[in-house]
Design a protein around this nucleic acid. Structure first.
Lengths: 251, 251
DNA sequence: CATTATAATATGTCCGAGTAATCAGGAGAT
DNA sequence: ATCTCCTGATTACTCGGACATATTATAATG
């Protein structure tokens, strides 16, 4: 009863509903899709997703790809799977909200205002402290990198991609000067997510104010080796960024 | 007694290479194994791991399980896989060092002293600020939970598991009172990892000093709604924890 | 020598079968 | 009637093999 095996027409016939080539790898696209769906509240915590075979078929992908995507979500604390109960969305306090991907997914759709405020509150705690440490530990090379980045920001302004890259370099150089890996990872994740949104919202209109002098103040304090001044200057910077972001989210 | 099924037992040849029974599922055990190997420096950044089939065979597991484990590591930024180049360990600045699992893996073997210092430096930045926010935002229920936890700590002392659980409850209650998800996730991850190590190292000997009064000072300040005092009291707490940990790592 | 075609190789995706764990419900004992 | 234990059903988990795709290295070509 086992003869028929010459079905040499798997799936490539006519329909091309395959999300293949969405840019990333397939499982990455799936993880992105379900991840954003969870972060945006489309799947509520506690809710159990449809079974593997059903969901995989619905997405028109193999179970392997679907499962590998779910492993990613599981690794980030978004879902949990158990043999009989199925796969369910975990409560929000289990999510790795500081994971770069999770942050990106959170900002992919309209981000929650409350969450953005929380992130800026965290930035306002961490970044001034980072500037303080940088003022104490920076060496000549650190200052050189910062100075170069600052000059590039002046030349290109934050309206251009080059200018924003210089901005990232500037902050990155400060973090480097703290000599603290954990601090670097944390601030880099948050900063990237927040800046990405800011850029997205603001891309067509000018920034409300010129942030170069504020950046320069941070640099001067770090170069002078003045921790208190560095911390204060960075605090102002974060505060202004919060104001800009909040005003842009009022639209 | 129906016993017809052949107990094939895929991974129980004779050798004890069976990563099963490490607690979690198979792929979880693999991820744990390779994760700790990477964190402990056994696989250096830049190094490319053996091919899938080879490595999977070496671990005596199927390729599917191995791949799902690698997806977990990829999701945490430890490795990167590309079609021809193979799977290579990413540079340290790409690792999600704040991921709970990554932290656990980092502390599984002898943790790097430098890294522990960095983590405590981060704690010293974040936790006092959290206590400050808690002092401003706590309500009656928050204080009730803290008070209960504090009483439990007094009863059981930190030498018992019950006492340590109460300690975690106390800090957790403070974080809850900040009303900031991001802050909660961050501090919870770090605190769990650090406390876990502390407990592990200290399990046989008494703590150098009685930490209850210091905890009580934090509670009093938060209850009084005094942000500055709360911040200062928490700063002392973290500092003492650092001293204890450092002295225990001298052995 | 530079550029382009080709082949080799490792990861990516798909499929189908069987295993293990968990929960619901029923048979039997207390 | 209540509890315990067994049995069955459901679901994720693991396995093995096959094919597709992307990237690199190499050879062929002008």
């Amino acid at each position: 009863m086992v003869d028929d095996k010459a079905v040499s027409d798997p799936v490539s016939a006519g329909e091309t509903s395959k999300p293949r080539g969405t840019g990333r790898r397939l499982r990455g696209a799936i993880a992105h899709k379900i991840g954003t769906a969870i972060l945006s509240g489309h799947y509520a915590p506690g809710q159990t997703l449809s079974g593997e075979i059903a969901f995989a078929e619905e997405l028109d992908v193999s179970r392997s790809a679907y499962r590998e995507a779910m492993q990613v979500l599981t690794a980030k604390g978004l879902v949990e799977s158990r043999p009989k109960a199925g796969t369910r969305v975990l409560p929000r306090n289990r999510w790795n909200l500081l994971d770069p991907d999770v942050l990106a997914w959170a900002f992919a759709e309209e981000p929650d205002v409350e969450f953005v405020r929380n992130l800026f509150e965290l930035r306002a705690i961490v970044e001034p402290a980072a500037a303080m440490l940088a003022a104490q530990r920076r060496d000549r090379d650190d200052l050189k990198v910062m100075k170069t980045a600052l000059a590039a920001m002046r030349r290109h302004t934050l309206a251009t991609e080059l200018g924003r890259a210089a901005d990232r370099d500037f902050h990155s150089a400060i973090l480097n000067a703290t000599r603290n890996d954990a601090l670097m990872v944390l601030t880099a994740s948050i900063g990237a997510a927040v800046n990405w949104t800011t850029q997205y919202k603001h891309r067509a209109r000018a920034l409300p104010r010129n942030p170069i002098p504020d950046h320069a103040r941070v640099y001067d304090a770090i170069a002078a080796g003045d921790p208190v001044a560095a911390s204060e200057a960075m605090r102002v910077l974060v505060e202004l960024a919060l104001e800009d972001t909040q005003s842009s989210m009022m639209d």
